[in-house]
Amino acid sequence: MYVEGIRNWKVTTVRSVAVKQSLMMFLGFITSIAYINDGEFTFGLVLVVFSSVFLLGIFERKTMSFSYKIAHLYVGSILMMIATGYLILTFAFSHFNLLVGEPSLRLSIPDFLLILTGIMSLFNVISLKKAVTREKTP
């Protein structure tokens, strides 16, 4: 058999995962709405998709649902980090605009919300990664 014995995993409890998941989902959707409200429709839509990764985690009800919930939390956080990274890099690169005499970008309120979400995601990924990679792949 290719399966290792049962191991217990105590770092994250079921409840803390559920709390994190709801929180991320809430933040994600709020940020998306803020962007859509600001006229950045497409980017808002992208964030809606990323936030629904958290949402779908709630519907994991089969066996091992706990693990799959964590998977959703983990990947959702990675996606949020990608979106934040995208924002920060675009912001950084926009300073090259000064070279050709055009203004650089300004951060808006939705941008700050996204950065907050990104920071939360970073914490999630670090804490989950530690827990998840403790187990070796078979």
Binding site: S67, Y68, G76, V132
Partner: peptide, 15 residues
Amino acid sequence: SSGRLLTLNEAMDHV
């Protein structure tokens, strides 16, 4: 095994 968490790869593949 059911007590074990998904590995990074498995978690990512799932989503």
